[in-house]
Design a binder for these strands. Structure first.
Lengths: 338, 338
DNA sequence: CCAAATAACTAAACCGGTTTAGGTAATTAT
DNA sequence: ATAATTACCTAAACCGGTTTAGTTATTTGG
């Protein structure tokens, strides 16, 4: 507030800015500043609660102790938790985070990356729209420290922390098969996102491995999925191809789907078993509670923060660049298993 | 990336840093720089996608176009939405936001405020723990631009954007009374937070106004509420004082409470009607869907961003400092009203 | 006793911009 | 023909730190 500067301390103690700066950066001993002088400086600084101007320091050091976080949407609980964990870990390690939502828009994401770069962040954590191959490649080429979280570019070799989307859906599908479901449907978005492609593949591959003949994938439009869910559910529960189980590829699709199933008086799990990939905080309160595949979100976030900061500070660098964390299936009553 | 600086442009065009800086800041005409020169500068800058070092600019201008956001916890959907909206509005107005969670800890909050200040943010938006009276007063005394959101210090005269917590609970209580409920209970946290005090007051005052004799408030510990909910619900549904309606003072208490009610095979709304202050995204999927009081969170956030930026830029300043926005009651089936 | 080493400290350049206070040369006014 | 403007541009200070390359006075070593 009533800001005090380095030169003020120096002037008041009859010393040079250099001495004060060295001491306050704990280089006093190294620079052989006498203990008495050091004490004087520390005391005076503390008494007037001096704290260095971060811009000035950043400018001269070329480092800001600030990380940029770009997510599709922090209002989404998935990313909110990621943000929270990253911020927490990051704060412990002496960094601050600036964030921005790309709204799943590649152009916005590109702009945000550039904005963050000229704000001189020391590194970036990006949950990418996955349509900025070039920007990401550029970051890599320029050796700018960054890590991808939640979504990665399989074709670019960089630090990526993701969860096992493929394996997660596999677990879910196997679970349903084991419970005797034969006509399992899959509701997802029509998207280029690697995660969604992998989830679909997890479903299809598992069916094939188990020689299941029936398969039915509904891919809703990324924007109009809200309106399209009604027709999709209608298709899935009527006609000859009525399903006896449904996997939703992400939490909000599950929520929408459940609403429709309810409207159609479908009994879960008797008529249709339901598994959700990702969950919302109230899924265990629903009747029946929804069996869900959950991602180790917190762990992913902490790891991303650590890997990034380590790579910034050139400490021990992770050996394998892509780290795939296991998902967990929480079995509740929506599949009739208990 | 392959960073280009002002002096590079200057050197390449045989001009001075001054000229280049003026032109790129659109002060070319004002400074009577010839159109030809201006064009050369703009072109060269664009071609080499120059963008000014934010630290340097901030240091010399004393302004960073960065806002600090301090919330109790961004993982909480309530604050996640606030963060998202603030970031969105703020981005439109040319600012960036750095955020941090105080974890409802006043000391941490104090530290965060100081950290943000020496990071030279231009202003702060704080959803305060409300136990940092002094820090807030200090901000005010030093004319540092800030606005309180969601929670305010009634005793400090500053910009505050809050919702009508008192009126919200009043609506809920009145609703229950009108539906013929006579023994309405209130579950909340034992907290000094003004919002929670107001919600309790809204409940108690409405009962009094309607000459209801019965009242029962359960105040759970702020940390152990999770464990305490079981006993609280037990008390509320057993003995002579069995309630026929419950109001939960915040979304996560509702979630916990519903879990307990379910465990005890309570029929909602037949045995007990339920209203939640604040909701979770799946509350409308529950059986029955939960009647909720919702706060105009998005509006609050946008307003906070606008008020802050306006006060930073000394544009039109809001006339009344405390802005109380109306809540809305979404009537679902948990009170038996339809 | 003098040279070398050391202790304690500092001047000044630098980071990359913005801004103030001019400086020339060409035009206009008288 | 000379003074006053004007058009166009710039040197240098400044923002508040960090860091390099010394300086000076005192010890130590031979």
């Amino acid at each position: 507030m009533k800001t005090i500067f380095l030169k003020d301390i120096a002037k008041h103690l009859g010393l040079s800015k250099t001495t004060v700066s060295l001491v306050l950066n704990n280089k006093g001993d190294e620079a052989k500043i006498s203990t008495i002088t050091q004490k004087k400086i520390f005391d005076y600084a503390k008494r007037n609660n001096y704290s260095p101007n971060h811009l000035a320091r950043g400018l001269s050091r070329g480092k800001t102790e600030t990380l940029g976080l770009i997510v599709p949407n922090i209002a989404d609980s998935h990313y909110a938790v990621i943000a929270q964990q990253i911020e927490e870990r990051t704060k412990e390690m002496g960094y601050t985070v600036v964030f921005s939502s790309s709204n799943e828009n590649p152009k916005d994401e590109g702009k945000l990356i550039r904005t963050m770069l000229n704000r001189q962040v020391d590194g970036l954590i990006i949950a990418s729209t996955q349509q900025n191959h070039n920007e990401i490649e550029l970051l890599k080429k320029n050796n700018f420290p960054f890590v991808l979280i939640d979504r990665h570019y399989p074709e670019i070799d960089t630090y990526s922390i993701i969860s096992d989307n493929f394996g997660g859906v596999k677990k879910a599908t196997r679970h349903l098969i084991e419970l005797g479901r034969h006509k399992i449907g899959f509701v997802t978005l029509d998207s280029k996102l690697e995660v969604l492609k992998l989830r679909k593949k997890g479903y299809l591959d598992t069916l094939k491995q188990n020689n299941m003949e029936f398969s039915m994938v509904k891919e809703l439009d990324q924007i109009r999925y809200n309106q399209e869910m009604e027709a999709a559910i209608h298709d899935l529960i009527n006609g000859t191809n009525t399903v006896d189980a449904l996997i939703f590829s992400t939490h909000y699709l599950t929520a929408l789907g459940l609403r429709e199933l309810k409207k159609n008086k479908i009994n879960i799990p008797k008529d249709i078993a339901v598994v959700s990939f990702d969950e919302m905080s109230a899924f265990d309160l629903l009747d029946p509670p929804i069996t869900s595949i959950i991602q180790p979100v917190k762990q992913m976030a902490k790891q991303a923060a650590e890997v990034l900061i380590n790579s910034i500070e050139n400490k021990l660098i992770m050996e394998q660049k892509v780290n795939v964390l296991e998902t967990e299936m929480i079995i509740r009553k929506s599949c009739g298993s208990n």
